[in-house]
Design a protein around this nucleic acid. Structure first.
Lengths: 167, 167
DNA sequence: ATAAACTTTCAATAACTATTGAAAGTTCCG
DNA sequence: CGGAACTTTCAATAGTTATTGAAAGTTTAT
């Protein structure tokens, strides 16, 4: 297989995976491109490689910076901004987990706390509702603890301990 | 807080969470509705509660059946179909993990295997590419093992072992 | 076989999300 | 300051995904 084909296929696939991780397609593709690049790239180069507009490139680069999974690099004597990806997939996964925890888990925890305040009126409905909310809360709390530990963990320790369990 | 408010808020929040789990908003809302319902519901009732059309209700109910997270129920002497949700959140999470593994992880594993066949031509680019692909593959394989064990696990065993670790 | 009761389909359309590219903004340097 | 080099914004538009609802299809009872 030729390098160019392989590169395109990987960028494509990474785009899809990233999408299911909560990034958007272009964001994930820019990330993939930076991931396999041997050197930091400029907006110009990203635009060219992925055939996207300046505005699109700029917006998605900023989103990636916002997620803290790529970095801005300055080169002495050059006014352009260069970008490089966090290359350690482990750090990347932790970072994504951290963001998603903030964006997704926290809001539902807040709602669960809120709706648990429903006034029990003795009906079957509110009884069931309370029960379901309690279970959801339990589950969400556990997931939160797990995610938090994951975010704070270090690679080897995590894989060593967890994979030992799951073998 | 009134039951009706709480119910609506929970359905809304569940809709968002479900979305980030890879379902779509309506799918997740129907699921939430069945989750807190004390009895199985018909398509008609779902349409009414969520203010959605017959087609929409039907399509999303079928998608939920497809994910195996709700069930079809027949009531003797009644021609209508009733639906009820898998109420155990643990079983639900396992089922979702299973589907996503199939839909998301498997394709990327396939691509990684494929692009690893790139012909090394001695350039820096292909060297880096190979390295990145190898790391991704390692990570994806580990995630796959982990997910698979999760899917096959039983609730107490899982939480007991994992949470002990992460305390 | 007929018809009522119910389910499924699907073309039209609404709603949402992503993308473009030109204009406005910023920074740097002589 | 002036203007070149670069970045950011945003209104317009393209593209995608979700939703509707009426028509077609299916099942069941008589």
């Amino acid at each position: 297989m030729k390098y160019k084909e392989a590169k395109e296929e990987l960028i494509q696939a990474w785009g899809n995976l990233g999408y299911s991780w909560g990034l958007n397609k272009t964001m994930a593709q820019i990330h993939a491109l930076l991931m396999i690049s041997t050197k930091p790239l400029t907006t110009e180069e990203i635009m060219e490689e992925l055939n996207i507009s300046r505005g699109n490139a700029n917006m998605n680069v900023r989103a990636l910076l916002d997620w803290h999974i790529i970095y801005r690099i300055s080169v002495a004597g050059d006014r352009k901004e260069y970008f490089k990806s966090e290359k350690d997939i482990w750090t990347l996964a932790r970072q994504v987990a951290k963001e998603r925890r903030k964006r997704e888990l926290e809001p539902i925890l807040k709602v669960l706390k809120e709706v648990n305040e429903v006034t029990p009126d003795g009906t079957e409905e509110t009884k069931e509702f309370k029960k379901v909310v309690k279970e959801l809360k339990n589950f969400a709390d556990k997931s939160d603890t797990l995610l938090d530990s994951f975010v704070k963990s270090e690679e080897n320790w995590f894989w060593n301990t967890v994979l030992k369990l799951f073998k």
